[in-house]
Structure formats: structure tokens, C-alpha cells
Amino acid sequence: MASELRVDTLKDSSGNNSVGMAYVAGGSAKVWANLNGNTFGLRDSFAVSSATDLGAGDYTINFTNSMNNDDYSVSVNAGDSAKSYPRLCACGTSQDSGFATSSHGITTLRPDTLVGDDMEFVNSSVHGDLA
């Protein structure tokens, strides 16, 4: 049988290491995704309904549950083992989709040309409040 526990603060059994539930819930990632930008597809994810390929190095992550507003934080990273220029970067927004309550965009670029480029690994984590 499912059980529900209502509590404001968690501590260890010694009464130390206190953490409020607001930090537990607010500090947890609400969405994370690991996708292959070369073959395009999600390897693994949490609370992601789908990912969209918008073009070279341009993707959208669509959420299963909507965020409360578009003021959330997105952390992104990308890499590719097969390319001779490993020093590539990822940005939290793309040309085609920024932050919305139901999705966010990612752009991956070659730093030397600043041209969109698909990557083997494209990762994102979303922190903020759910609706």
C-alpha cells in the first residue's frame, strides 16, 4: 500500500545534517536528458516526453510535467569522441526555441567557427519549480 509522509525537515538520526523539504524538492533536478545528437535519440532521461531535432546542433527537450514558469535554470554540456576538435560548447537556448514551461532548447557549436554542429553527447539538467 502506498504511504505518504508529510514533514518539513529531514535530519539524520543524530539530529544533525538538517535539510528542509523545500531544499529537497526545490534542489532536485526536475528534468534531465542525455541524447545522441549524431544519430538523434534519447539515451536516457527523466521527466522528458520527447526530444526534437531542429537542425544541426539545435535541439528541443520537451518536458513530461510543465514547469511553473519560464524562469528556471538549465545546465547543459556536450562532447563528441569522434571529432578532432573536442572543445565544443553547449548553450541553454537555441535559435529556434528558448525557455518555455514545457520545453527548452539547446544549441551545440564548434567554438572555432560558431557554427551549429551535432554532437555525440548532449546533456541537460533543469532546476526550478514545477507547476
Partner: peptide, 11 residues
């Protein structure tokens, strides 16, 4: 500067 997951092309 920025940090990437790869290292000299070797994930």
C-alpha cells in the same frame, strides 16, 4: 573558458 565532457576527442 568552458568545460566539456570530452577530453582531446576521447570520451
Amino acid at each position: 573558458a568552458f568545460v566539456a565532457l570530452d577530453s582531446q576527442g576521447n570520451i
